[in-house]
Nucleic acid binder design. Structure first.
Lengths: 237, 237
DNA sequence: TTTACAATTTAGACGCGGCTAATTCGTGAT
DNA sequence: ATCACGAATTAGCCGCGTCTAAATTGTAAA
């Protein structure tokens, strides 16, 4: 109810922590990871973490990492909601290219009022996910995380459906769009090269070998309940 | 061509100077006027003026006032273009009320990219004025200031057309909308009270007595070339 | 012409968010 | 059990934009 009056910088840090927590598995997020993500020095991160800890938005365990508190996660989700509504609006209503919308939204999200947020939501028909397939948090701070895994973790031989594509890297996004790997696309995992080699997949009738950066950016779900047996079918080409 | 990299604060000051120069008649704008307009101390204004003067955006004549240079005016018009395109978009495409759009645009204008500016412009069909009747500067920094005067300066007995309504005061704007004094409305000036008394006008078949703040916020043009003779017709009620 | 006052500028300080350099802490290797 | 090293924190600084208090200046009145 009370306005937290979080500054733009604070919001960026909260968003970063939320993102890193989603991305990796570990709970505690290290200072270095945040620093790298935000292109900022480690000292700046520590400084901000102490500030956010005082505000009760973050639990800071010195030398061991930080994690969002309930209030912090709520604040992060509010920013994320702004971001994804904007992204959706920019793409669908103003024709901003898929791979540019993220950067635009990053700048606009901090200037979006609650009223305008509601208007965008309504104009879009209350969407539940953005153009990249990422779920849009609801107004009350709920987010439905679809049960998806990274394509990197998909079993060879299975056919999966793309649910979500990370929107941070515009070039990667453009590449994926070119391949036809957009949310909803069906991808057949053919084989995994040895020693962290490329993942061979078939999508839209064509085969590709995808590197690690790519397969970690794409989230998929085993659509047709392929009874996740360990069938190591390796049908290349 | 070169990015001036003007900060948000700098843009706000440039906008303020431009506005005050338009509003009043004098060329040189005083420190106090800027300070009041931006709700900032006079010392802060002087500080910023020196900074802007160094950047060549402002001509600072110590103790005598400042005025925008060509570069400064260009920068101000760029911000103003962002502002008015946003205002127009918010009103017509998202249904934001007339009197709220200004505040929203004030926050969004600094985060609007050139690309998005172009998309808004196109989506709106390349408008030349915003919902308040204010002209929208063109991309190349041209602005067509329509030959209008303040309603306060209109001669009693004439009938004028509202061309523009200042958008800074939401409450005033709501009041004017209620009266039907929107751009395009025809207003008959009945009489002017003595000693800066209220201006009696007829609009939409009804008569009103308007205070100074109101008549200075409304710009009008003598539409039907009413041969501006000094006919002091005083027909009240 | 002098003077008083209001407007303006200067001086000095603060909070924010950032940085570099130095220090402290955890932990994996010995 | 120790040690070395990388990660994290602390210390101290900077620029921006703001402020209050103390000069300074322009000008209008006497």
């Amino acid at each position: 109810m009370t306005e937290s009056v979080t500054s733009q910088a604070e919001q960026d840090y909260l968003k970063a922590i939320y993102h890193l927590a989603q991305d990796g598995e570990r709970e505690k997020i290290g200072t270095a990871a945040i620093a790298e993500w935000l292109a900022v020095s480690a000292a700046s991160v520590t400084h901000m973490m102490k500030k956010l800890a005082e505000r009760g938005l973050v639990a800071h365990h010195p030398y061991r990492g930080v994690e969002l508190t309930t209030a912090g996660e709520r604040a992060a989700l509010e920013v994320l909601r702004h971001h994804r509504l904007l992204e959706t609006y920019l793409c669908t209503q103003l024709g901003v290219p898929w791979d540019q919308a993220h950067r635009e939204a990053d700048r606009l999200e901090h200037a979006l009022s609650e009223d305008l947020e509601a208007r965008l939501d309504q104009a879009l028909g209350f969407p539940t996910s953005d153009p990249h397939g990422s779920p849009i948090p609801t107004k009350d701070g709920t987010i439905i995380a679809p049960p998806s895994r990274k394509l990197a973790a998909a079993m060879p031989g299975t056919t999966v459906t793309v649910t979500e594509v990370a929107d941070e890297d515009a070039a990667l996004l453009a590449y994926l769009a070119d391949l036809g790997m957009v949310p909803g696309a069906r991808v057949t995992v053919l084989a995994k090269g040895p020693f962290d080699g490329p993942l061979h997949v078939r999508v839209g009738g064509r085969d590709y070998a995808l590197g690690d950066a790519v397969t970690r950016a794409v989230h998929v779900t085993t659509a047709t309940t392929t009874t996740t047996t360990t069938e190591e079918v390796a049908g290349a080409e």
